[in-house]
Every structure is written in C-alpha cells, then in structure tokens.
Design a protein around this nucleic acid. Structure first.
Lengths: 219, 219, 219, 219
DNA sequence: AATGAATGAGCCTTCATTCAT
DNA sequence: AATGAATGAAGGCTCATTCAT
C-alpha cells in the first residue's frame, strides 16, 4: 500500500542497505538487486531514486563522510585545548559508531573504488583534507608548523592503518585499544619534544627533523 | 609451433600481467581477457595454467608475499642489532620495489578481496604474522614484551596506513619520507623509554602501559 | 484542486506532446514518461486517459489522419474542376501544416509501426484509400480508368517519397518545390496524353499502357 | 563442435539474421537474442563478433548498401546509352532481389533509425548521393542540367515512395509494375520534352521550369 | 482529477569458463 | 602448447503499467 512522502524514507533505507551489503561482501561488488532486497524494495526503485549504481554508491559515501564530519564537529566543539582537539579527532575516528565493522568495510571498499572513480576520489580528498586541518588545528599551537605537518601525516596514517587491520578482523577488533595506540604516539611525541626542549635549550627534534630548526615554537 | 618448457615462462608472465592490470585498474575487477592480453596469450591459456581466475589471483598474491618475504629475509640477515632489525623491516616495506604504485595497488586490492576469499584471508594472516614476528625479533630485546607487542602493532598500522595513502596518491608519494615517518616514531618511542628509565629509576612508560609493569626488560 | 472538464484538454495536450516527441526522436521509441512530461502531466494520467501506450499512439495517428482529412475536404470543396481537384490533393499534402518536420517524422514513424500493429495498418489503409479516391475523383474525368489508376498510384508514390526525403532533411526541405515536382508530373502526363490524342486520333498512351486499349474514355 | 575459420560464416549469418528479423518485425526493435537465435548462435557471440547491437545494425546496413551498390555497378556497366543508364538504375532498385519484402522493410526501418543515428544518416546520404549521380549520368546528356536535377529528384522520390508502399503490402507487391510506373514517368517526360522542342522551336518546359531557360540542351 | 510509489519483465552487455582442434 | 569458438549466467538499467491516495 503505497504512501506519499516515501522518498526520504527509501533513500535512507537504500543507503543503509548499501552500507550493510558492502560491509558483508567486503567490497563494492554488490548487486543493485541485493541492496534493494535488503531495503525491502525492487531494484527498479533504487534506480528510480538514485539514477544508477554509481550514484547510489556515491550517495552512500557522502553519507559516511557527512556522518563522520558531523561527529567531528560535535567533538571538536567540546575540546577546550589544542591537545584536547587532537584527542577529539582520534576519539571520533575510533568511536563505537565509526568503528563498526560494516562502516569500516565500507570505508576500505571506498578507498579502493576511489582508484576508478574520479568523483569518489574527490570526495575522499575532501575527507583527507578535513582530517588534516582538524589535526593541524590542534597541533600547530603545540609545535613548529613543519613538525605539525609531519605529525598530522603520521596520525592520519595510523588511523587508516588501524582501520585496515580492523577490516581484516585479525587482532585488533577493539576500538579502545586502537585509539590508545594513536594516543600513545601523540603523547610520546609531545613529551619527547618537551624533554628535548627542557634538557638544555637545545631544539627539540621534531618528526623527520630538518637540519636547521633554530627558532622555537612557543606554546 | 609450440615450444616446450613454456610453462614457467607463461606462469610468470601471467602473474606479472595480473599485477600490472590490478595496478592500473586499482582493483581486482580485471578481466581474464585483459590479463591474458597483457601477457600476450589467450585467456584460455590462463585457465589452462591456473585453473581459474581465483587461482590466478591467489598465485599472484603468493608471488607478492613471497617476494616481500625474500626481501625481508635478505634485509634481516644483514641487520647486526635488534634496532637494525626494526629498521630493516621498515626499509623493506618502503623499498623502491615494494612501494611501486602497482604493487601498492595490488596489495590494497588484496586486502579488500580477502574479505571474500577464505584462502586470501589466510595468506594475508601469514604475512601479518611474519611481519609481526620480524618486528618482535627486533623489539623484544629492547623492551618489555607487552610494550613490544604494542609497538609492533603500531608500526604495522603505520606501514599499512602509509600504503593506503600512497595508493590514493595524495600527498605522500615518497617512499623515503614514508619510511622516515615510521622511523621517527620508533626512535621517539625508544628515546622516551630510555629517558623515563634514566630519570629516576622509575619504570619507563610503555605504549598504553598496563597498570602493573614492575619488572624491567633487560637488553 | 482538480478541475472539471479537463479531459478534452489533457487528451489534446497528450496527443500534441506525442507528435512533438516522435518528431524530435524521429521514431516511436518515445517513453510515456517523456510524452507525459511534455504535456505537463504524470505518465499515470496518460494511462488514465488513453489506457496504454498503444492506444495513445493510435489516437495520435487518428488525429493526424483526421487533420489531413479535414484539410483535404476543405481544399476539394473549393476545387471547381477535376484538374483543380488533383492540384488540391497535392497542395494539401505539401501544405505548410502537413509538411512540418515533426508531422513528417510522425508519419514516417507510423508507416514503420504499421508493420507491427494491425490497427495502425488498418488506419493507414483508410488514408491510402481516401487519398486514392480523392485523386481518382480528379483523374477519371480526364482519362481512361486504367490510366487514372496508374497515375493515382504514381502521384501517391511521389508524395510518399517526397515525405521520406523530407524526413531525411537531405536536399528538399521546401514544400513548394516538392509540390512543383508532382504538379509537373501531372501536367506533363496530361499534355502528353492530349498530344497523343490530337496527333492522329491514335489512342493516347497511358501509364504502363496495356497492349490493347482501344476504347476511349469520355469526359 | 567448434571449428576454426567460423568468423566470416558467423558474421554473414548474423547479418542475414538481422535483415530477416527486421523484415519480420518491420522495425529495428529486434532483440539481440532473437537475431542470434535466428543465426543459430548465442547472443553473446553476436556481441563477440560485432561489439554491440548498434554495430551489428550498422554492419547490416552497410551490407545492404554495398549489395545495392554492386548490383548498380553491374547493371550500369551493361547500359550502352544514357537512356539505358536511367532504366538500369530503375531496374536495379526494383529487381527481384532488392524488392524482396524483408529487404524493403529493412530499408524503411533504416530510414527511420537514421533520424537517431549519426552514422546511419551518413551511410544513407552516401546511398542517396550515389543514386543521384547514377541518375544524373543518364539524364544530363539528354537535357539541361537544371531539368536533369529535377528529374533525378522526382525519380528518386518515386522509387522511395514505391518502396514505402511495398512495405505496407497494400496494393503494389509487384516489382514489375513499380518499375513500369517510374519508366512511364521518364518516358513521358522525355517525349514531352521532345515534342515541345519539335513543335515550334520553343524551348521545352522542364520540370518546375525556371523563368529563364533560353539555351537549349542538345542530345 | 491527478499523482507518487512501486514493480515485473525484458534487454543489452560482460565475463569466466569450456571445448575441440 | 595454445587458441578460436562458443556459451550460460548474471548484472545494470529502462519502461510500461498498476495502485492507493
């Protein structure tokens, strides 16, 4: 019994079904029929609302990105200090919601698909830039810009790496321990910088320190 | 006129073609026809030698794993100290050969495919375990076992993460800087442990230190 | 708020939209959705009023036929002589209205579709018979019946042929020159018959004259 | 039991099947499955050899055009005089082979499809130009160029028109009578021109005679 | 009167796979 | 040893059509 105003309902259901399907299959090799089936509709309807498979995939990815974005904004808003901002970024990426197995699988699949799809690559770049700028907003007040850039890169790499390992389900299913690993890295780096600083006024060694780093970053 | 002894030649050519094809497409969505074409043979021949697509994919992955394995063995053999072993592992993973774009793409594609294929998953676990044990062989002499485990995890995550980012070509195409990032992490951790140790005899704080770490690891 | 008495309005709009759509696409491969869209209504409404696509197509063709029929009646009514009747038929078929590109395309499409649809074929036969009888009404007073039949056939063929060429837009987009071509044929034939007649009382040679045509047609 | 060297056999069979299918359906709305079925192969094989439906359609049209072209060349070669050339062109178009019902249907379908397909339109133009130049080669020695152009147009239109009527199967299934109709037109025109010429030296009235036609064409 | 919602059926196309040669 | 020939199965997509509102 058809009702009016179903469009948003169906769109949401189809996107959720897409995530679920990708999560289960582990790749984007899911059929429209399966997605539609999971959403309880015909595949024709999925085409009706999204235009085609690629569009549905893209819409799904946008959903993932915007969800993550919203979570990040919310978390960052509550962070009082630069240091807290860093932790907030880490926490969001390893939150229970974001680290759900199917979400992780979907992300991984998107990374791969991005190789083929120009638009997907663009979306992924948006995410990467945002992650980077979020991290930088916490890092730059604490160290020299060049060090901050390196640390942001390292942190991002660890996050991505832990996602992959999570996807492989092979040893680190625990979001808390994943976050702890990254936090430990950050903490160690910061203390080490502090220590080097304190010791004898000698400049702290940043990440991949450049030969000449005479000027000191104040915090 | 068919030649004899072509089998090993064809097998190699087909596996190389598979890597090349995956590297270009960025995923395992490559047709047997394309692979065979790249290898200069008919797709029927690929089936003849490998049995089927899955088998060819698996053989290709085994090739990747064994190449990496051989490189690792060679590098580790030359490493005189535990610390050098760690660097050797990092160096191998970011060597010019292993960090070639098509190899990186192939690895990423395999990670995804591993979700679906039981055998691929098994192979990937073998690699993960070996990477882990290689790292542990360098780490355990330098710190407590629990810390070593955490660091091994972190290093592995960074390596995987940098691979992903390499695949996306978005900012870190340079193997040297990728390796430097990981090396810096290792170095910072080791110094920090040392420093904490020296300070006042208090036990160094390891990675995600467990509440009770009274006993010291000797080296 | 739905209005009353919309039915005739909608029917006309849908039929016009059908002609326009066919004219643009150049064939009957137009979707109900597009036709309905052009008419500013939903495709469901098109079904509501016409029952189905085939019915809409038929209704459209009937419209075309009846428009042409009305034009023909009007023109013939004004024709004072048999000769004028012939010209009237020609003029109507190449009138600005009937020779509009979209109308021509629609006709051509119908000719093709008639192959499949029994009903469409029937409709086309009605038109053909009417065209024939209109021509015959002008021709029979001027010549023997057998000659009239042949000329009617030839005139009709020329008209159809010129329509096709018009549809292909390749050299004869001009309704006037198309009509002139047919008129010239008629005129030439009539003069030739006249001349043959005058020459020596020998029977005029009709179209594809049969060996024995001794008896003369009176007018 | 697969054999080698089947490609040309299959290609021919598929093109013939395409003509047959179009002939029966009366339009290009034929499925690859049906065509392949008629040719006794799977639809996949049709794709294998032709690439896609459009390509098969085009190949079929090219076959039609080239067959007609060859027939025309052969017939024209045997024509000793200009007048004979005209008759040769007419004869070829209404030959038993070219006027076969399925061939005629295919032609009509192509005319319609040409509206949509750029390539098909191009092919059709080639045919039209060739028909025109063949006719002109017979007409220009017999009359002024402007008259020849008009007559060529008229003849071509009659041919196309008779094809359409043939496709509709409604009264003129006979190739001989179709050809006779066109021949009669040609003959009448030529005699009329002759007569007008002879009468009193006044210039013969050509088709849609232009206001100024002072100079005479000699033959 | 009119439409959004929804679908079944069908078509084109791709591709791994098999087989006879 | 190697391949051309051939296909079954499956997937994306379109579209006419129906139905409840």
């Amino acid at each position: 019994m058809p009702k009016v105003g179903m469009e948003p309902v169906r769109r949401r259901a189809l996107i959720d079904a897409t995530i679920a399907a990708i999560g289960e299959r582990g790749s984007l090799n899911v059929t429209m029929a399966e997605i539609a089936g999971r959403a309880g509709v015909s595949s024709a309807l999925a085409h009706h609302y999204f235009g085609g498979k690629d569009d549905l995939i893209q819409a799904t990815m946008r959903k993932l990105l915007s969800d993550l974005g919203h979570d990040a904004v919310r978390a960052l808003r509550r962070a009082p200090t630069p240091r807290a901002r860093i932790s907030a970024v880490i926490a969001v990426n390893f939150s229970a919601e974001q680290f759900r197995a199917e979400i992780v699988h979907a992300w991984l699949a998107f990374y791969v698909e991005a190789q083929k799809s120009r638009e997907l690559r663009r979306l992924l770049r948006v995410y990467a830039r945002r992650l980077n700028s979020d991290l930088m907003s916490g890092l730059t007040p604490l160290m020299k810009r060049v060090d901050a850039l390196h640390m942001a890169e390292a942190i991002a790499a660890m996050i991505d790496g832990l996602y992959i390992r999570r996807a492989l389900r092979d040893g680190l299913p625990n979001p808390a321990s994943a976050a702890a690993l990254v936090e430990d890295y950050v903490e160690t780096k910061l203390r080490r910088m502090q220590a080097a600083n304190d010791e004898n006024g000698a400049p702290a060694r940043g990440v991949a320190a450049s030969p000449a780093d005479s000027e000191e970053k104040k915090r």
